[in-house]
Design a protein around this nucleic acid. Structure first.
Lengths: 154, 154
DNA sequence: TGATTGGGTACCATTTTAGTCCTGTATAAA
DNA sequence: TTTATACAGGACTAAAATGGTACCCAATCA
């Protein structure tokens, strides 16, 4: 289904929640309550986001989590990567030379292009967009034939 | 990682292989050999593709698999859907009302838009493109601000 | 009639995912 | 200085998805 994992989904929701009140630290318990999810799970997600550098944490009383940078500078791709690792549609599009089928498959080049296009789409969507209740404006897909700018050839 | 499952990858490779020689039926064993994958696995994949209506099969001696329609009318989204089910990034973007967090999450609308954009990207890539050894021309992502066409608001 | 080739299903092993818990450490306030 | 608060890290378990295989049946053609 090309689906995000559940944790990634949680991460987005939690990040959005923080983004809406960016000026105070948010404790895990508070966030868990706000998004009605079990606390340990939310905690786990938060830790991953810190390790990825998207959140900063403050220990101790009155501590909690804050965005590491403005919501407009955190992308959907960042959040996905924080939980699931780098966005890549196929095995071979993440690391070079790992796929010993490359010779017979003859599809990898084009998959990688698709992967890249999705990646750049996700790069263009920021947390500020996600957290906004108004709809994001996304490019509508034009027919391929009408597009002049092409990916570089391999 | 937002990754395709391995079977989906196989499916694309196998479909591309058939697309390159569209005029004769291809036996599972022949295809397995061509793409150097175990035969039972290739068979399984082929069966799924038939059930999804992307391939037609012919039993008996000299039988095999053919494309159900021209490669230019089979999309990447079709292939993915055949193996993994409909393309949808989040739980709530596939079926309405299944996500009881919708009230607190406040992100679902925008995720759905992103999901739709990816979907239309995948709809625009055909098997003919994938099977082609020349690079596909894909739209380069423009900055969101510069895009005038917006998704309909909910 | 028998060889060939796909169809369907059930099954198993492995990996991934989700979720929980425990113990340790930093911080702020009393 | 003490104590309550809150994050850090890792281990562990349960459940689900995934990948792969095997088996037997049905259709087709020579």
């Amino acid at each position: 289904m090309l689906k995000l994992s559940r944790l990634t989904d949680y991460a987005a929701v939690v990040m959005a929640q923080i983004a809406r009140y960016p000026h105070k630290p948010h404790a895990a318990a508070e966030l868990a309550q706000a998004v009605t999810l079990p606390q340990p799970t939310v905690s786990k997600t938060l830790k991953m986001l810190v390790r990825a550098g998207l959140l900063v944490s403050q220990r101790g009383a009155q501590g909690g989590y804050c965005l590491a940078r403005p919501a407009s500078q955190i992308t959907a791709a960042d959040i996905i990567a924080a939980i699931e690792g780098p966005v890549a549609m196929t095995e071979c599009s993440q690391a070079e030379g790992d796929c010993e089928l490359a010779a017979t498959c003859g599809v990898s080049d084009n998959w990688q292009r698709v992967s890249l296009a999705i990646r750049s789409l996700l790069d263009s969507v920021t947390l500020a967009h996600l957290a906004d209740t108004a709809p994001i404006k996304l490019p509508v897909q034009l027919p391929i034939q009408s597009i002049s700018l092409a990916a570089e050839s391999a």
